[in-house]
């Protein structure tokens, strides 16, 4: 079963999405800040990372940069899951190629799960 790393500092979001994914049979690992996210990515080698952009310790832009520049983690698929509109962050992430980018306030849980399935296919 696919392993998903969810890097997000908001507890309610962590719990609700993790629960929804676990019930669909996914194995979910949660990380509550950028540093913990990077460590977990290296240790757990997930199939997919869900990444928020505004995070404590190391922000999501920096996490993205480090994941993409390390040979160990550069091939892991990533979905950016944030409330920052893409237009505000696009300049900072465009160099990492086309990324899946979801503004989380605009999506219901089942739509997020569907998107995750699509990316994992």
């Amino acid at each position: 079963m696919a392993k998903i790393l969810f890097i997000e500092d908001e507890e309610a979001l962590q719990k609700s999405l993790a629960k929804a994914l676990e019930m669909e049979g996914f194995n979910v690992i949660g990380a509550y800040d950028g540093q913990a996210g990077i460590d977990a990515a290296i240790k757990e080698k997930p199939d997919l990372i869900l990444l928020d952009l505004i995070l404590p310790k190391i922000d999501g832009f920096e996490v993205l940069k480090r994941l993409k520049s390390s040979p160990e983690t550069k091939d892991i698929r990533i979905i950016i899951l944030t409330n920052l509109e893409q237009t505000q962050s696009v300049e900072k992430i465009i160099e990492y190629g086309p990324l899946n980018y979801l503004v989380k306030a605009n999506y219901n849980l089942d739509e997020i799960v569907a998107k995750i399935r699509e990316v994992l296919k």
């Binding site: 908001e10 309610a12 979001l13 609700s16 999405l17 629960k19 929804a20 409330n83 306030a105 849980l109």
Partner: peptide, 23 residues
């Protein structure tokens, strides 16, 4: 507005979860 979106998203997903009736 951005600050308010975070708790609103939490509410949305938690309600989704409860309404999904899997719990």
């Amino acid at each position: 507005s951005h600050q308010i979106l975070t708790p609103l998203t939490s509410e949305k997903w938690l309600v989704n979860l409860l309404l999904g009736q899997k719990l």
